[in-house]
Amino acid sequence: MEFDERTEKCREVFSLLSEYLNLELPTGACQEIETHLAGCPPCIEFAESLRKTVELCRRYRPRELPEPLEKNARQQLLDAYQRMLGARKDPSQLNR
C-alpha cells in the first residue's frame, strides 16, 4: 500500500514537522499537530525519527580538523588584527 492512502492530516503533519520541532508554529497549529500525533502511531514514529535526525546533526562534531595554523598565516591575521586595534585607538584612521 502506498502513502496516498494516508489521510490528508498525516500529509499536513508531515509537511509541518520541522517547524513543529523548531517551535516555529503558532499555538493553534501546534496543538492541532499534537492532537493528531496522539492518535496516529505512524506519524509519531516518523516524527521521532526526524527529531533524532536533528539531534544527531546538532551533536555532530567533525573528525576532520584543519592543519595547524602556519606561522606566516597566523602573522598575517595578527597584523590585520593589530591594524584594526590601532585604527580604533586613532579616530582619524576609522574613516579611511
Partner: peptide, 12 residues
Amino acid sequence: LPAMNHEGGHAT
C-alpha cells in the same frame, strides 16, 4: 514520504 503497510488491520 515513507511507505505504508496496512497488514493486520492497522497502518504502520
